[in-house]
Design a protein around this nucleic acid. Structure first.
Length: 306
DNA sequence: GCGACAG
DNA sequence: ATCTTGTCGC
């Protein structure tokens, strides 16, 4: 989905003399959770009609918009639209593209294999990204199964067009990850991705997409909990199950004294095997291939700045 | 029924 | 994820 194009299309529908809100635009895109992404996008690229977008209470988010709004006959009082409810436009024509993406996730989720299809004990690849606006610095680090020796590494920079929206992360980060994977000299037999696998409302987080699209065993490792409930008080070095709607979706694992990480299968691996493999790779809080990929991304970004 | 929500 | 200084601790 082309996020900018969809947003441009919706903004064209707001008539002169009317306004709409970030939330209303997000709803029209198919998911109200995208309201912040709409805000960030409009803040960075002022599409035609950007000045007609307000907060949910009619507040003006961009001070520069006030003059144009008044010219269009909209009355403002204390940086808020007077009679907001009356002139608020919500009657959008839209295919609701985010709802389509959610449907796609639910459909692809049926292809996820939750049994161990791990080939020979081979290499493990970690993938991570860091950003400068819509510039994504991506890195892949391949190590041995114990996370001791680096066997291969790839770094690249690309432009991403899809914003960060919780539960749609894969539509932002899959392409850079896929590009990294394609440039590796030796293909790892197991992939680690920053984010969730089946620990996702559609049971299809980014680790699942990476696994299914690349046809490789994949595990998702997240640093904060997206959904589900964890038994409170996980002791260090130990783990506890994460259930959601009666299903075991992953584990919370506390490598040290700090916060836990959240492990879930992406593809071709069982929850328990995913947990054990990640445990074996955790020298620090995050498994080594992911930690080194994270460091590589940070270096790239700093090098691009200075 | 409503809110929360990976990077 | 990013914006950011010094500071506490192993």
């Amino acid at each position: 989905m082309d996020f900018l194009r969809e947003l441009r299309w919706l903004l064209e529908q707001v008539p002169r003399g009317r306004v709409t809100s970030f939330k209303a635009l997000a709803d029209a895109l198919g998911d109200g959770k995208a309201a912040k992404a709409v805000y960030v996008t409009l803040k960075e690229s002022k599409l035609p009609g950007w000045h007609r977008v307000t907060r949910s209470d009619g507040g003006i988010p961009f001070h520069e918009a006030a003059g144009t709004l008044i010219q269009e006959g909209i009355r403002l009082s204390d940086s808020r639209v007077v009679g907001f409810q009356g002139i608020k436009f919500t009657d959008f024509r839209s295919q609701r593209p985010l709802a389509l993406l959610r449907r796609e996730q639910r459909s692809l989720a049926s292809r996820v294999v939750l049994e161990d299809r791990l080939e020979k004990p081979g290499e493990v690849g970690g993938f991570d990204l860091s950003y400068q606006g819509n510039r994504a610095h991506a890195a892949a680090v391949v190590m041995d199964r114990e996370g001791v020796e680096v066997l291969d590494e790839v770094r690249l920079t690309t432009i991403v067009s899809f914003p960060y929206i919780s539960t749609y992360l894969s539509y932002r980060e899959f392409e850079p990850i896929s590009l990294c994977y394609g440039r590796l000299r030796c293909r790892p037999s197991l992939l680690l991705v920053d984010g969730n696998g089946i620990l996702h409302p559609a049971r299809f987080g980014i680790a699942c997409l990476v696994g299914v699209r690349l046809g490789r065993p994949t595990i998702g490792v997240a640093k904060s909990l997206l959904l589900g409930r964890v038994d409170s008080g996980v002791k260090q070095g130990e783990n506890s199950q994460i259930h959601h709607r009666g299903r075991l979706l992953g584990y919370a694992y506390r490598p040290g004294r700090g916060k836990p990480i959240f492990i879930s299968p992406g593809h071709m691996i069982s929850p328990s095997t995913a947990l054990e493999l990640v445990k074996g790779l955790c020298k620090e809080r995050v498994p080594e291939p992911l930690r080194l990929a994270h460091l590589a991304c940070g270096q790239m970004r700093r090098a691009a700045v200075g």
